[in-house]
Simulated assay, not measured.
Amino acid sequence: MAIELDRAQRDQAIQSLTRYVEQELDQRLGNIAAGALLGFFLEEIAPLVYNQAVAAVQERLSQRVAEVDVEVHEDEFQYWRRREAKAGGRR
């Protein structure tokens, strides 16, 4: 699955890359070079991050599904117990 950015996100990412290179590496990076670098990151590295995020979500969902029976469990045959408890409180 290719990871794509919309135009506004791409522009913002390019601005961030050029700023980072200028401030942290003391180098000048033009918009075309920054765009190419961003494209490389999206194609080469972004799938790794994406796959890790998917794995984390799968683990979290598995844990939640395992807890569903506890969260939504209802005890059976409670009518008479509840009725007796109400009657006991009225005495």
Results as ranks from 00 to 15, higher is better:
Phe40Asp: 07
Gln15Trp: 04
Ala8Thr: 12
Leu29Gly: 02
Glu59Gly: 15
Tyr20Pro: 02
Arg10Ala: 05
Ile45Lys: 11
Glu22Asp: 12
Glu4Trp: 04
Val68Arg: 11
Gly35Ile: 02
Gly88Trp: 12
Gln52Tyr: 10
Ser16Thr: 01
Arg19Gly: 14
Val57Arg: 11
Ala13Trp: 02
Gly39Glu: 13
Asn51Cys: 10
Val65Asp: 06
Ala36Gly: 07
Gln52Phe: 12
Ile14Ser: 04
Asp11Ala: 10
Ile45Gln: 09
Ser62Gln: 14
Ile14Trp: 00
Glu76Ser: 02
Glu74Ala: 11
Lys86Asn: 08
Ala53Cys: 08
Asp11His: 00
Ala56Gly: 05
Glu71Ser: 11
Ser62Tyr: 10
Asp26Cys: 03
Ala36Phe: 03
Ile3His: 08
Phe40Asn: 06
Glu59Asp: 15
Glu76His: 02
Lys86Ile: 14
Gln9Pro: 00
Ala36Pro: 00
Asp69Pro: 13
Tyr50Ala: 15
Leu48Gln: 13
Arg81Lys: 11
Arg7Ala: 14
Leu25Val: 03
Glu22Asn: 11
Arg28Asn: 07
Asp69Lys: 15
Gly35Leu: 02
Ala34Val: 05
Arg28Pro: 04
Glu43Trp: 04
Ala56Asp: 11
Arg19Pro: 00
Asn51Pro: 04
Arg7Gly: 00
Arg10Met: 05
Gln78Ile: 03
Arg82Val: 02
Trp80Arg: 11
Tyr20Asn: 05
Arg83Val: 07
Ser16Leu: 02
Val65Met: 09
Glu59His: 15
Phe40Arg: 10
Glu59Trp: 13
Ala53Glu: 13
Glu44Arg: 14
Asp6Ala: 08
Tyr20Leu: 04
Asp11Val: 03
Gly35Gln: 06
Arg64Val: 10
Gln12Pro: 03
Val70His: 12
Gly39Ser: 11
Leu25Ile: 06
Gln78Trp: 03
Glu71Pro: 00
Glu22Val: 00
Met1Tyr: 09
Glu22Trp: 07
Gln27Pro: 00
Thr18Asn: 05
Leu25Pro: 06
Leu38Ile: 00
Gln9Lys: 12
Ser62Thr: 14
Leu25Asn: 07
Arg91Leu: 12
Leu48Cys: 07
